[in-house]
C-alpha cells in the first residue's frame, strides 16, 4: 500500500477536510477564520506567512490554512495546494477598484491542476459595509458563471465583522466536500 493511500485512509477515518483560504490582502481571511472559531477578532495584524487552524465542524475536522494575501507572498500560495479539499476565495465586496485584480488572481488559481477537484466557496465579505456589492454583482464581476461545469462552486455574502453568512458558507462547503469524498459511507 502506498503512503498516499494510507494517508487517504487515515483522513477518511478522522473525517478530515483540508480547506485553503486565499484572496487579496485586506479581504478578511484571518478575521473569518477567527470569527468562525469564536475567537477575538479585534486585533488582527495583516498575515505575514500563514495560519493553520483545526476546527471541529459537526462531525468533521477542518484543517483551515489561512494564507497571507499581500502581493509579495501571493506566489507562495501554490505551496499550499496539495491535498486541498475545499478552496475558499474571500472578496472584499467594498474594494471596487481592485475587483479586476481579484478576478485575475482567482482565475489564475482555478487553472491550477492540483486544485481541480476542490470545491470552491466564494465569500463576498464585508456585506455590512454600506457601499459593498451584492454577492450577485460580485459573481458577475468575477465571471463565475463562465466556470467549467465540473467545478462545484457557490457564492455566499457574509460579514466577518458581524458573523453573518459565515456558517451558511461553511455548511455548503463541508456538505459539498463530504458528498464527494465520503460518498461510500
Amino acid at each position: 500500500m502506498g503512503l498516499l493511500s494510507i494517508i487517504r485512509k487515515i483522513k477518511r477515518k478522522e473525517k478530515e477536510m483540508r480547506i485553503l483560504m486565499v484572496g487579496l490582502d485586506n479581504s478578511g481571511k484571518t478575521t473569518i477564520v477567527l470569527k468562525i472559531n469564536g475567537e477575538d477578532t479585534s486585533v488582527i495584524s495583516p498575515t505575514l506567512g500563514f495560519n493553520i487552524k483545526t476546527i471541529k465542524y459537526h462531525k468533521y475536522s477542518l484543517n483551515i490554512w489561512d494564507v497571507g494575501g499581500q502581493k509579495t507572498i501571493r506566489s507562495y500560495w501554490r505551496n499550499y495546494f496539495e491535498q486541498t479539499d475545499g478552496l475558499v476565495w474571500v472578496v472584499d465586496s467594498s474594494d471596487i477598484r481592485r475587483l479586476d485584480d481579484c478576478c485575475a488572481e482567482l482565475h489564475n488559481l482555478l487553472k491550477e491542476e492540483r486544485l481541480a477537484g476542490a470545491s470552491l466557496l466564494v465569500f463576498a465579505n464585508k456585506q455590512d459595509i454600506r457601499g459593498a456589492l451584492k454577492p450577485s454583482e460580485i459573481a458577475k464581476v468575477l465571471n463565475l458563471e463562465a466556470m467549467d461545469g465540473s467545478r462545484h462552486w457557490q457564492i455566499v455574502g457574509c460579514s466577518a465583522h458581524t458573523g453573518d453568512g459565515l456558517l451558511q458558507g461553511f455548511d455548503w462547503l463541508v456538505q459539498d466536500i463530504a458528498s464527494r469524498i465520503y460518498v461510500l459511507e
Binding site: 471596487i96 479586476d100 454600506r130 457601499g131 456589492l133 454583482e137 464581476v141 465571471n143
Partner: peptide, 12 residues
C-alpha cells in the same frame, strides 16, 4: 475594461 466593473457606481 471589465464592463461589469465599469458599471458600478462609486461609493462615498
Amino acid at each position: 475594461p471589465n464592463p461589469a466593473v465599469e458599471a458600478i457606481l462609486p461609493g462615498l
